[in-house]
Simulated assay, not measured.
Amino acid sequence: MVSSLLTRRGLLAAGAVLAMTPALNPQARAAPARRVAVLGDSITAGYGLPASQALPARLQAELARMGQPVRVIPAGVTGDTTAGGAARVDRAVPRDVDVCVVALGGNDLLLGAEPKAVRANLDRIVRRLKGRGVTVVLAGVRVPALLGGTYAREFNGAFASVAKTHGVLFLPDLLEGVALNPNLNQRDGIHPNAAGVSLIARRLAPLVARGLRAG
Rank of each mutant, 00 (worst) to 15 (best):
60 Q>R: 09
26 P>Y: 10
186 Q>H: 10
12 L>G: 00
17 V>P: 02
72 V>D: 09
74 P>T: 15
112 G>M: 08
27 Q>F: 10
80 D>A: 01
204 L>V: 10
29 R>Y: 03
173 D>C: 08
22 P>M: 07
126 V>T: 12
191 H>E: 07
2 V>F: 12
196 G>P: 02
150 T>Y: 01
82 T>F: 10
98 D>F: 00
183 N>D: 12
154 E>Q: 11
198 S>M: 01
23 A>I: 11
174 L>N: 05
50 P>G: 08
163 A>M: 05
104 L>Y: 05
174 L>E: 09
207 L>S: 14
131 G>E: 15
111 L>W: 11
105 G>M: 01
104 L>H: 10
84 G>N: 04
74 P>M: 13
47 Y>E: 07
26 P>G: 09
32 P>I: 03
201 A>T: 04
159 F>G: 11
69 P>Q: 00
86 A>Y: 11
138 L>V: 05
29 R>V: 14
20 M>P: 00
143 V>E: 09
52 S>F: 03
214 A>I: 01
178 V>T: 05
178 V>W: 14
131 G>T: 08
93 V>K: 13
120 A>S: 15
161 S>T: 11
62 E>N: 02
29 R>S: 15
128 R>L: 05
162 V>W: 10
50 P>V: 06
46 G>A: 06
125 I>S: 11
41 D>Q: 09
195 A>S: 13
151 Y>D: 05
34 R>W: 03
120 A>H: 07
104 L>A: 13
10 G>E: 09
107 N>C: 06
127 R>M: 12
89 V>T: 13
67 G>M: 00
179 A>N: 07
150 T>K: 05
57 A>K: 00
1 M>C: 10
59 L>T: 12
187 R>Q: 14
164 K>C: 03
215 G>Y: 10
22 P>A: 04
57 A>D: 00
132 R>E: 13
59 L>K: 12
98 D>W: 03
34 R>H: 04
123 D>N: 13
215 G>M: 01
120 A>I: 00
66 M>D: 15
110 L>H: 06
96 D>I: 12
188 D>Q: 06
33 A>T: 05
98 D>Q: 04
21 T>A: 08
145 A>Q: 15
145 A>L: 08
9 R>Q: 14
173 D>V: 06
69 P>V: 01
113 A>E: 05
168 V>C: 05
98 D>A: 15
125 I>D: 01
24 L>W: 15
91 R>H: 14
163 A>P: 10
139 A>R: 02
143 V>S: 12
98 D>R: 11
137 V>W: 01
147 L>P: 02
52 S>T: 15
169 L>A: 13
169 L>G: 05
18 L>H: 03
140 G>Q: 10
126 V>I: 09
93 V>L: 03
77 V>A: 05
188 D>R: 04
23 A>L: 15
205 A>C: 02
185 N>M: 14
36 V>Q: 06
